[in-house]
Design a protein around this nucleic acid. Structure first.
Lengths: 238, 238
DNA sequence: TGCTCGCGCATTGGATCCAATCTACAATCG
DNA sequence: CGATTGTAGATTGGATCCAATGCGCGAGCA
């Protein structure tokens, strides 16, 4: 990228452009690649290599790395490079416990405040989610899954809680996507999503909260089994 | 800092040195200054000015800014500089609600697991805290206050939960320190800390959890009153 | 043969230079 | 006289260069 052409911009068609720095675009791309499992746990990321791949200097890569570090996806060791973080099994489980706690809490407040608009918005995302599901489009499934959950929470008007939940969801996302590869949990998730939406649209917080918690904790159990199998398999292979 | 002398290092006395990059040292210093209220809400931070003040180039400042942005203390607007974030009153309250929820949850697990060592460690920090209190040393009081709370939680062995709590505490810290200036809440906090420690040392989770929650929520109420008074005062003055 | 010291390579951290962009103010035109 | 445009100053974003650090390998010595 020698002379300024900010990624996806086409000068003639600019109606609503992105207005974000190169490093941010980079961070988005790298985050997606980590969450999709392209960069595996423990893998080292070399600034020079990434910079060459995207045809930029190392500078925006450095800044992107800092953002990813703050998001907990990589760890920067002084003068020793960055590695994709690897979470022990208990901590993955702990993240799901946190989600059950926080998402339950926010749902208790958001469901009674559901509006016609918020319900329509959630329905639209759910539809996209099912399309992605049937199309085996795992890349967008991960993002849409979070978008759906989030669409159920916005009416709570709790930005700090939502931000905290989002942070935790980023961490769990890559393991969830991994699980979708390994198990047939997707079908079950689809059913639960539909029920979750139904309860939200009915503004039935008393039913939605325990259902949501069960949804998250069930995903936790399946996931932990899948990961522990996979990891012990890897260990045996190496 | 023309030729390499990493801030606080004295070459002859290196037993356990910090091993951290300049940008990290900078981030620590700037964070402390924001939390202490030296940089007020909404105030703009100019890279060049900070760089000149610390006698470094703008580069480590840029990296430090990114860390602070990730911590939620400043906001970087593209080509428009960084400003210290300002939270609306409701969101400050929300942060305290989150703390009550999460710290209560972790205390329920950590108190029964208290060990002689963890109790001794907490007692030591509590002693330091009271020294800082009597010495009117507000700078270290802020840090010690968090250290004390944290020392009560380590036995829960929930690193992700603890990290989340820490993140939220960083946000609330500057308002707490502000409150200490404005009110006489310190004395009350000291009493509650002592009681909190007593319950933890007795491994009485059933009593400690509600007491802790009440401790946090009481602080919330007092703080919100103090801040709303201060802000309306500022508005009237301007 | 085994251990240690030192040198060289790989990689990151920091400094400096240049480009891009935002703000504000002023000049010009209707 | 007001609106709009152009231009200068300020400030950040990106590129390139240099310094520092960590690591591995091989030479040299006991």
């Amino acid at each position: 990228m020698r002379r300024r052409q900010a990624a996806g911009e086409v000068p003639g068609t600019n109606h609503r452009i992105k207005r974000q720095g190169l490093h941010e675009t980079l961070a988005d791309s790298l985050r997606e690649r980590i969450l999709n499992g392209e960069f595996k746990e423990g893998e080292q990321l070399v600034q020079e290599a990434i910079a060459a791949e995207y045809e930029v200097s190392r500078m925006p890569v450095r800044e992107a790395f800092r953002q990813l570090e703050a998001a907990g996806l990589i760890a920067n060791r002084l003068h020793k490079g960055a590695v994709v973080t690897e979470l022990p099994l208990e901590q993955i489980g702990e993240l799901f416990d946190l989600r059950a706690l926080l998402e339950g809490e926010i749902m208790a407040r958001s469901a009674p405040r559901a509006t016609a608009e918020s319900i329509a918005a959630a329905a639209a995302i759910l539809a996209q989610l099912e399309v992605a599901y049937r199309g085996d489009d795992m890349g967008s499934w991960g993002r849409l899954n979070w978008d759906f959950h989030r669409s159920l929470y916005v009416t709570a008007e709790r930005p700090q809680t939502l931000a905290t939940i989002q942070y935790i969801n980023v961490q769990t996302d890559r393991y969830i996507r991994l699980q979708l590869f390994l198990t047939d949990a997707l079908e079950q998730a689809e059913i639960e999503h539909r029920e979750l939406f139904r309860l939200y649209a009915a503004r039935d917080a008393a039913a939605a909260v325990p259902y949501l918690r069960a949804h998250i904790l069930a995903a936790k159990e399946k996931l932990l089994v899948a990961i522990s199998r996979m990891r012990s398999g890897e260990r045996a292979a190496s």
